[in-house]
Write a protein that binds this DNA or RNA. Structure first.
Lengths: 127, 127
DNA sequence: TCTGAGTTTATATCTAGTCTAAACAGGCAT
DNA sequence: ATGCCTGTTTAGACTAGATATAAACTCAGA
């Protein structure tokens, strides 16, 4: 998974990678730290974050939901959001501009209540 | 905006609501607190959060991005995510299950680089 | 005026994540 | 083998975002 990315393999990093590869439930950094500490007690928090940020930078893993502060939107009609990678501005996207995601109220076993499309890229100013 | 929701109007709440209504850029709680404090110095952080949570519960505003911990996903192929409202589990949704969002590499003035669909509802166990 | 429900405030606390400095480990030249 | 250099790990301090608690305040209604 990692060869060729210039990463020096260490037991801690191997444990983090193996845990991620075996996981199916999108663990948080905390989950990962707990799991790795069962095999390598005393693996420190910064090591976990260092490794995760590095794997992310190499494109080997993705962040599913960005953390950071919650943002509030007074527009409660259905619409989507565009986030600029550079300046972080968030702009509303009217739904008709997007080829609507359309599916029933069920998705396999799941009862769908709402969905949100987050589009990422560069805004006009940042291009 | 608020009449009929059983909310008692106070200057702080009015300022928060008016600021939100005039905003187009999805402010954070911090942004809101700073803005309200220009009109009502010493409006405390808990008051801002109380009011926001209350407006959210009344459906008058939406949270655009959930805060909380970042989650990591070793699956780097394009796919979407389902989040259960009750148990918070996150499951991968293969893209072919969703009527794909399709649009060009431009959306008006914006350069689109990626997009992510987050579907919310109840998972099988929680229904 | 008094009372009490609801609101605001200050403060403490919690969680997620980053920064810094010191200790440590391994590879390479001498 | 010894010493140096680079990169890694660790502990601990720190920051930001958010919540909990308890005391003080406000104001409508008796």
């Amino acid at each position: 998974m990692v060869d060729g990315y210039g990463l020096k393999m260490t037991p801690q990093r191997r444990a983090i990678i193996e845990f991620l590869q075996s996981s199916v439930d999108h663990p948080t950094a905390e989950d990962i730290m707990n799991a790795v500490n069962e095999r390598f007690p005393m693996t420190s928090r910064p090591t976990v974050y260092n490794t995760l940020n590095w794997l992310k930078g190499s494109g080997l893993i993705n962040e599913v939901f960005e953390g950071g502060a919650v943002r509030y939107d007074p527009n409660t009609s259905p619409h989507h959001h565009f986030v600029c990678r550079r300046c972080r501005v968030v702009q509303d996207i009217e739904p008709e501009l997007v080829d609507a995601v359309s599916f029933g109220t069920r998705l396999g076993d799941k009862k769908v209540e709402s969905f949100q499309v987050t589009i990422r890229g560069l805004c006009q100013k940042c291009q």
